[in-house]
Design a protein around this nucleic acid. Structure first.
Length: 291
DNA sequence: CACCACCCCTGGACGC
DNA sequence: TGCGTCCAGGGGTGGT
């Protein structure tokens, strides 16, 4: 389940291998995983109303171009050629990028780069997506403009703006990529626990002080997770198959029924915004405070 | 507009 | 051992 920390781990591992290298050939095994310019941003495979996919030319997937930089916003990774096209990789639930000569299961797109480097996008459940754009500017306008500020550097004031006027549970807001980009179910629960905030509290009922605490907790949890190479719950691996180490540091995620690491109470679990949510009723009291 | 249920998909865990 | 069932959830879509 790649979230910001896992995507950033990938970005840092890929950059030294890819930057400056030319893509010699691209192999597309699963057309539906790729959105060409003009295709619905979601990828036509996901829309209920069937849309005929636009013709896909391999130059759209960077064939013949040299890679200049890798950028990340939230959970999305952009591969940019500078003066040419750019692609946006969304890993979804089980997507991954690897550099290996041997093929892995469920490979959908493979880039063969100069020097014998083989980059592959694999995704068992195909929730992931590769968006093709004419330029990095186009990618930013069409894809990243609708995302909220990046969670790794979120400031209290930005979080306050996102929460203002929203009666949704704070957990639901943290998961909303248009409010805050990069936090998924794991780091939402971990951040709320660290901040001592109950996940059911309406976003607009949190005081400025608690929002400051929460913004700091989000930054810290993500920084620590990146330092540990991300969380490997099921599928996530960095480019050389190495698993992350942060899952052993989870304080609440997937620990329902186990004792709270801080107070020993039994951790509770409930559904919020269609997501399993684990928290400590003692350390994260459901107090509604005056604003 | 804000919010939420639903849907896409498959591997792994678990019960019998 | 094997098979059926449930669950995980990112994010777009459509309905309320």
């Amino acid at each position: 389940m790649p979230e910001l920390a896992e995507v950033e781990t990938l970005r840092r591992a890929l950059a030294p291998v890819l930057i400056g290298r030319k893509v010699e050939r691209v192999v597309v095994r699963t057309r539906s995983i790729v959105a060409a310019p003009g295709d619905p941003l979601a990828g036509f495979s996901r829309t209920r109303t069937r849309v005929r996919p636009r013709p896909l030319r391999r130059a759209m997937l960077l064939e013949g171009c040299a890679i200049r930089r890798l950028e990340r916003h939230g959970k999305q990774l952009a591969v940019d050629t500078g003066d040419g096209p750019a692609i946006c990789v969304q890993l979804g639930m089980t997507g991954g990028l690897s550099i290996a000569e041997a093929s892995r299961p469920h490979e959908h797109v493979i880039w063969l780069l100069e020097g014998g480097v083989r980059l592959a996008f694999s995704d068992a459940r195909r929730f992931g997506l590769i968006g093709c754009h004419t330029s990095f500017e186009d990618l930013r306008e069409r894809r990243w403009a609708s995302l909220g500020p990046d969670a790794l550097t979120i400031r209290a004031e930005q979080l306050a703006r996102a929460c203002a006027g929203s009666g949704r549970p704070i957990k639901a807001l943290l998961l909303d990529q248009s409010a805050l980009a990069g936090v998924g179910n794991i780091y939402a629960d971990e951040s709320l626990f660290l901040a001592g905030i109950n996940p059911t509290i309406p976003a607009d009922r949190l005081s400025p002080e608690r929002l400051r605490t929460l913004a700091g907790a989000i930054r810290r949890v993500l920084r620590d997770a990146i330092r540990a190479g991300g969380s490997s719950i099921r599928d996530f691996r960095t480019i050389d198959e190495a698993p992350g180490r942060y899952q052993s540091l989870h304080r609440v995620y997937a620990r329902a029924g186990q004792p709270c690491v801080r107070c020993g109470s039994t951790l509770e679990s409930r559904m919020i915004a269609q997501r399993r949510t684990v928290f400590c009723r003692t350390c994260q009291r459901p107090t509604i405070e005056a604003v």
